[in-house]
Computed example of a mutant assay.
Amino acid sequence: MQDSTPTTLALGTLASELERLRAASPLVHILTNEVVQEITANVLLAAGAAPAMIVAEEEAATFAAMSGAVLINVGTLYPARLAAMRVAVAAAHAAGVPWTLDPVAAGVLAYRTDACRDLLAQGATAIRGNASEILALAGLGGAGRGVDSTAGSNAALEAACELARDTGAIVAVTGEVDYITDGDRILATPWGHPLMTRVVGTGCALSALVAAFTAGAQDRLTAVASACAMAGLAGERALATSAGPGSFKAAFLDALYAMDPDELRSRIV
């Protein structure tokens, strides 16, 4: 690495990336955890993208090739779903469509860990995971407990850089502070709130947002970091009108929808 010091993403960069996303409203093909489909779709709609969930193996390749981006989330993995994921990833790769991997619980169970490594051979654009998942994919073990991480994001920063260099993907390791790297540059997004972890699907939905921001991106590092920043800032703003996880979910969607690029730029000093 030329510089291992993380740089906080500029809000002006987020503002520009958000304007780009909303102008394009990319179609995102989502093959995701069955537990989180509803919140994932709503997060994309609120942010300004267009979600679609085509899960049959017979259709997945055709739809992936015509999409703006593809998300692969292995949360509820089984053979038929994995088969659809494989053809979708192959078609996306062949068509030059960016695709993102969310390696849910990689390192905890061999089936999904092997599947993730197999999928990564198709050239992922981005990988978004917690510290334990990133450590596992980098071959450095992990400290996972099911879908949760027992390691902080800073503990996986070097692993994220190594994984980015090995795969060519932008790697986002998320936690109290999110770190996003291409193996050389490192961006940090320090926003968010612990209440986000009390709503099922916020992390998985973030991975879909990452996929959406990669569509048409000229600089995929800043695109992925902008997705992380948008979600974290929306989480902070949602807290102000929330009494607990139930109201937080609605407020989070509202905050994504209401995020204003001009207001973001006004905060720059």
Rank of each mutant, 00 (worst) to 15 (best):
S153D: 07
A61N: 03
E263N: 13
S247P: 09
R81S: 13
S242T: 06
T32L: 10
A47G: 07
A208P: 12
E176V: 13
P26H: 08
A121N: 01
I30G: 15
L11H: 06
N73Q: 04
A52M: 13
A155G: 09
V55S: 10
T214V: 03
A231R: 01
L82I: 01
G183W: 02
L120S: 00
A138M: 04
L18H: 13
F252C: 09
G146F: 07
A240P: 03
T13W: 07
L21S: 11
T125V: 01
S67Q: 04
I30K: 04
A251W: 07
Y257N: 15
D262T: 10
A208D: 12
A41M: 08
T76N: 04
E59C: 06
A80R: 07
L77D: 05
A188Q: 06
A126G: 00
V104D: 05
N33G: 14
A229E: 00
I186R: 00
R112S: 01
G183T: 00
I268S: 14
R20C: 13
T76C: 03
S67G: 04
V97T: 09
A255Y: 08
Y257P: 15
Q218E: 15
A250C: 15
V74S: 05
D148T: 11
G142D: 09
L187W: 04
R185D: 03
G216E: 03
Y257R: 15
A64W: 04
R20H: 12
A69Q: 05
I170K: 04
A151D: 09
A255M: 15
L206H: 07
P26C: 08
V210C: 08
Y179T: 00
H29M: 13
R22W: 14
D254I: 10
A188F: 05
A251T: 14
L77E: 06
I54A: 12
A169V: 01
T76Y: 04
V70W: 02
G244E: 03
D254L: 14
F252N: 15
A94I: 15
V171E: 05
R81L: 15
A49H: 08
L140S: 09
E38A: 09
G201E: 08
A110C: 02
T214A: 04
P51Y: 07
L45G: 11
P190I: 01
T13D: 14
S149L: 11
D118Q: 02
S226Y: 01
L195K: 07
P261I: 15
